[in-house]
Amino acid sequence: MTTEELKNINANKIVDARGTACPGPLLAAKKAIGDIESGEIMEILSADEGTKHDIPKWCEKMEHEFLGVVEEDSYSRIFLKKA
């Protein structure tokens, strides 16, 4: 997905993990994914540089579809679709 497409997505759930460092955002994502249905979209907000590299790996393991990252000034918005 392109950045423009990602910016227009309305996520079914937004997880704000900007107050935590590794492995906080990952644990927040894991916790929140239970709240949405298969095929729905989750957005993770993280100020931790590692998260945008970790979430794709996590998706690979958990078989979710990683959609991409939108960079903001001091944090990243990471999008994925639940398997």
């Binding site: 590794c22 492995p23 990952l26 644990l27 994502a29 894991k30 996590w58 393991k61 958990m62």
Partner: peptide, 11 residues
């Protein structure tokens, strides 16, 4: 402990 808790996120 970071590796341990991270691993739980990976199920």
């Amino acid at each position: 402990m970071i590796i341990a808790t991270g691993a739980t996120a990976m199920d």
